[in-house]
Amino acid sequence: MLKEHAKLMGAFAACGEVIGRKKLQKMIYIAKKISFPFQEKFEFHFYGPYSEELTLRVEELCDMGFIDEVREKKGGYYQYRYTMTGEGETFLQHAEVNMPHLKETVTEMNNQSARFLELVSTVLYFDTLTREEVAEKIFTLKSKQRYTEEEINEAYAYIEKLKKLH
């Protein structure tokens, strides 16, 4: 019944803590794109790929007491910090989640900035386009982020690194 929730719990368990809703969205999207079996549907949004389904699942996990969400004021905005609870650990022990290499992959992503993961997820979102077309999309859609050619190359290299972990 809660199979998709359990998969998300596997990601939280692997990371220990995720800081930021945007980072969480990008981590799950990237994991899905490199073939982890996450089922959430994503659309392109202000900060790159975004899933309303993922937002709702995380809210449900918080409501069930499996994930703890702490809202912290950071300057002019709020940041959300997610950790798994004891009830979440118990739930996960009884759920059958079999995603080899998830821990290494999400732990690696969790060490990156949300800004970089936004770039990586945007590159993956437009993966049917040529590299030049992807760069053009990024310079147009993400002009406020001021990504450079070098950062785009780093994003492509990072995607290959993650695929090797998987």
Rank of each mutant, 00 (worst) to 15 (best):
T128C: 11
I28Q: 02
Q112F: 09
H166C: 15
V97R: 01
K32A: 09
L129G: 10
F116C: 02
M99I: 11
E151N: 08
E104R: 09
E89M: 13
A31K: 01
E53P: 07
R115T: 12
S51M: 06
N153C: 07
Y80V: 06
Y82A: 03
F42N: 03
E151L: 06
N98G: 13
G76C: 01
V18T: 00
P49I: 11
I34A: 05
T55V: 11
A114T: 04
R115A: 09
L117F: 00
K23F: 03
E154F: 05
E59K: 15
Y156R: 08
H101Y: 13
L141H: 06
E4L: 04
L129K: 09
T148D: 05
Y77N: 12
G20Y: 00
K137A: 03
E69R: 15
S51Y: 05
E132D: 15
F91M: 08
F139R: 08
L54S: 03
R146Q: 15
K103I: 07
F38A: 01
I138R: 01
T148A: 07
T55R: 14
V134G: 06
R146F: 10
E40F: 04
T90G: 11
E150V: 11
Y82L: 03
Y77T: 13
L54E: 01
S113K: 09
K163L: 07
E104G: 05
R131T: 14
S35Y: 11
G75C: 00
Q93F: 10
